[in-house]
């Protein structure tokens, strides 16, 4: 099938995002129960996201005084679209990619940079104090995520001698990048967690702001934002699986299944960390990002470059 045709492409990307978001929600609820020491009721876990979504769909939308209604509606759409662009660049099985373009990781990086715009607009639009503070928090942090993200992706591209995600997957035949470039995946996941404002890096939607950019959203708006945020997380996990865990490569099972398993593992790691690690202070994270993460990412680039020569 021609996956780069409009309809199959949209269906494929949409399916990956929705299925991934659902699995991430189930994993999240399961991890919460494990950490809280409550019984793990599989039936409830599996039905939970659907029930929650149904409830949010039933709750009325609310508005604020003089909101920026267009940008409020645009914000989750923008986030979801950027997650879609990111997933489109990744081959999900041999020959199954919507847009395995020559400069796939550049496109991915660009899409992730636009996430900042979505998060800021979401905070800005409701014309309320805490959401605005949340939006500015994301802007203050975005560069600290994007720099290490771009650098570790460049390092991963070096052995492949290509910026295409498909070529990077091929280049890991026999040796995955997670082993070849041990710094890459952890840095990528930290940055990815930040871009999905997840767990310890969820400052823009943190409990200290009573929900940050999402304080004023209700019902379907809240659902849209939660979905969009999960989509970004899924996009990060899919890209991580392709670039660092060998993508669809693996013995025995079909490529698509390997890809799903690897994505699931990364989602589980991120979700688990989210329940174990406290929210990080803004100021401290920026210092750590520029004094530790970015230098480490540079080391990753230089070491990978030296090895590739």
């Amino acid at each position: 099938m021609n996956w780069s045709a409009p309809l199959p492409g949209v269906v494929l990307v949409g399916t990956v995002l929705v299925a991934g978001a659902y699995v991430a929600s189930v994993l999240d609820a399961g991890a919460a129960r494990l950490v809280a020491g409550r019984p793990l009721r599989v039936g409830e876990l599996v039905a939970g996201p659907w029930r929650e979504a149904a409830l949010l769909a039933r709750i009325r939308r609310s508005t604020t005084e003089r909101p920026d209604a267009q940008t409020w509606a645009l914000a989750p759409a923008l986030l979801a679209a950027m997650a879609g662009v990111a997933v489109a660049t990744v081959p999900l099985a041999p020959g199954v990619a919507v847009a395995d373009v020559d400069d796939g990781i550049v496109l991915f990086g660009a899409a992730m940079a636009v996430v900042m715009v979505g998060a800021f607009l979401h905070g800005w639009s409701s014309n309320s104090v805490f959401p605005l503070v949340g939006g500015y928090r994301f802007v203050a942090l975005a560069l600290s995520y994007e720099m290490p993200l771009a650098l570790v992706l460049i390092a991963a591209a070096l052995p492949a001698q290509s910026l295409s995600v498909g070529a990077i997957v091929e280049s890991q035949q026999g040796l995955w990048n997670v082993v070849r470039q041990p710094l890459g995946l952890p840095l990528f996941l930290v940055a990815g967690m930040g871009l999905a404002f997840w767990g310890p890096l969820g400052m823009s939607d943190g409990a200290d702001l009573a929900g940050g950019t999402g304080v004023e959203a209700s019902g379907p708006d809240r659902l849209a934002w939660a979905l969009a945020r999960h989509f970004v997380l899924v996009a990060v996990a899919v890209m991580g699986a392709a670039v660092f865990l060998g993508g669809w490569q693996g013995p025995g099972l079909p490529g698509a299944l390997w890809m799903a398993i690897k994505t699931l593992v990364l989602l589980a790691v991120v979700v688990g960390v989210g329940h174990r690690v406290a929210r990080i202070r803004l100021e401290r994270f920026v210092v750590v990002a520029w004094a530790v993460l970015i230098p480490l990412a540079l080391v990753d680039v230089f070491a990978s470059g030296a090895l590739a020569l």
Binding site: V35, A36, G206, H275
Partner: peptide, 12 residues
């Protein structure tokens, strides 16, 4: 713990 974003640990 809840205030630091650790609702599940807080529950325990």
């Amino acid at each position: 713990l809840r205030g630091h974003g650790l609702a599940a640990r807080a529950q325990r």
